[in-house]
Design a protein around this nucleic acid. Structure first.
Length: 468
RNA sequence: UCCUCGAUAGCUCAACGGUAGAGCGAGCGGCUGUUAACCGCUAGGUUCUAGGUUCGAAUCCUAGUCGAGGAGCCA
């Protein structure tokens, strides 16, 4: 059906730049059809290149009109040749007057699951193979793409190296949550035999699992080739059933030598703002859609984020604010306990109504690798909290002093010999360094206003759910 | 994992322990440069599963499965 007279065009291109009398070939899927029995029909054609549809006018005199128009129900794939013309109707600048149509694949309206009208997100999660054909999930896919691109360009513009850290990692070395085990052992036979598992017989000769973080490996490169970042899938086998946790998610983890905590916070703030600005620039229509249909204050809150400095607040100051707030919290606040969701929400949504960076947390509630402060009580950790989502970034300055790190590991019940290579980074040419992790899906949540993180990734993996 | 709520037509939901309905979607017809089009008619049900109570269960009880919201874990 290709034809040099009719150049192939994307709907996004035609809607923004198409001119009357241009001949084009467009291909996509029918969203809706409005029929005028004798005369002609309007087809709303979507090809995913943008949120909007191209209105195609199919005249009644087209050969085979009666049969082919009947097939053009919602979900049908079709290609049209025709001529652009200024639209007589309201709602679109330009439309296509079809001169030829080919139905590529029909979609039986009696069984096609997607209707013209909206569906609940719960229903659409069961149709993950078709939901990208809806406005919301098409928009989500484009925004997610723009965020991913912005992540790379932010770091590439600053000379960071993109480092690929392993997906499969050896043993229980990371301590950041439950790991998914990776094995080639025949579990059914093992269970039947009643024998103990002998990991020396396993593929790697020892227990292995899916990564929960690329941080430790990123530190290897930060302390050799300089500023770097990882960006890839991450796995947590926690039995988490919330709107902001996934068993498989994507995480960005920059790691920078010579950065102290304040530098880390500055980078994190620039990073979040950069991503939002990029998406606003590239996906304006999609964000307008989310603002209209999903979260009415979305654009207002995104503008608020990019136009103010993030509040920087020590954990100790935060505790004081919460204690003096007069709020009745379900969980009382006292120095030394981790802050609850309700506390974080109070700070970001009510007290400041802005993103907040909390830092210098009590050492007993944070990880072994975070650098100890001189007060003996706190470590140089920082969390970036945003309204509605909560923690979007968690990071720290890393402990670079060999003896302090060893002592801290022992205090946390970890065996230093398991981390021999991590410790050698401190033994040979150690430097102060810092880094953080940003959850991609939570960023999608923040920027789209989508309530549930399961709707911010194409194929969500959660407990009891991995159909697609 | 804990707490709470839910599961009925393709979808979203009603139905006091007593004949399972509506709106939307779909099919058919009408009307119309329409645009979440509109108007009329028609079809469509193992009420999540397994037990139990009862003359009688969508409805009450028990267990389970799945889903949602909140909490924890965190990105």
């Amino acid at each position: 059906m290709t034809d040099s007279l009719y150049p192939i065009a994307k709907v996004a291109h035609l809607l923004s730049l198409g001119q009357p009398d241009e001949l084009v070939l467009v291909r996509g899927w029918v969203r809706t059809k409005r029929e005028s029995k004798q005369d002609f029909a309007f087809i709303e054609l979507n090809d995913g290149s943008c949120l909007a549809n191209l209105q195609v006018v199919v005249p009644g005199e087209l050969p085979g009109y009666a049969t082919s128009i009947k097939e053009l129900s919602t979900g049908t794939s079709v290609s049209f040749k025709g001529k652009l013309q200024a639209s007589q109707g309201k709602g679109q600048r330009i439309e296509l007057l079809a001169s030829e149509l080919h139905v590529l694949g029909t979609a039986d309206p009696a069984t096609y699951p997607l209707q013209k009208k909206g569906h609940s997100f719960e229903f659409l999660r069961e149709k993950a193979h078709l939901r990208p054909r809806t406005n919301t999930f098409g928009a989500m896919a484009r925004v997610r793409n723009a965020i991913s691109f912005a992540i790379h360009s932010f770091f590439q513009e600053r000379g960071f190296l993109y480092v690929h850290t392993p997906i499969i990692t050896g043993s229980d070395c990371e301590g950041a949550g439950q790991i998914f085990q990776v094995t080639t052992l025949d579990l059914a036979r093992l269970a039947a035999s009643g024998r103990a598992v002998d990991y020396s017989q396993d593929f790697f000769g020892k227990p292995a699992g899916l990564t929960v973080s690329g941080q430790l490996e990123a530190e290897i490169f930060a302390t050799s080739v300089g500023d770097c970042y990882t960006f890839g899938p991450t796995f947590r086998a926690e039995n988490s059933n919330t709107t902001r946790h996934l068993a498989e998610f994507w995480m960005v983890e920059p790691e920078m030598p010579f950065y102290e905590l304040a530098d880390n916070m500055t980078l994190a703030e620039s990073f979040v703002k950069y991503i939002i600005r990029q998406v606003m620039e590239k996906c304006g229509d999609d964000l307008a859609f989310f603002n209209e249909r999903i979260e009415p204050k979305l654009l207002e809150s995104l503008n608020n984020i990019i136009s103010h400095n993030f509040i920087r607040l020590s954990y100790t100051e935060a505790v004081e604010i919460l204690q003096k707030s007069g709020q009745s919290f379900q969980f009382p606040v006292e120095w030394g306990v981790d802050l609850q969701s309700e506390h974080e929400r109070f700070l970001t949504e009510q007290h400041f109504a802005q993103p907040v960076i909390l830092y210098d947390y009590p050492r007993q509630i944070k990880s072994f690798y975070m650098r100890a402060n001189d007060d003996g009580k706190t470590v140089r950790a920082m969390d970036v909290l945003v309204p509605r989502i909560g923690e979007i970034i968690g990071g720290s300055q890393r402990e670079e002093r060999h003896d302090v790190l060893v002592a801290r590991m022992q205090e946390c019940g970890l065996k230093p010999e398991d981390y021999w290579w991590y410790l050698e980074l401190r033994k040979y040419g150690t430097v102060p360094h810092s880094g953080f992790g940003l959850g991609l899906e939570r960023t999608v949540q923040l920027i789209t206003g989508m309530v549930n993180i399961r709707d911010c990734i194409p194929f969500p993996r959660t407990p009891k759910s991995a159909e697609f």
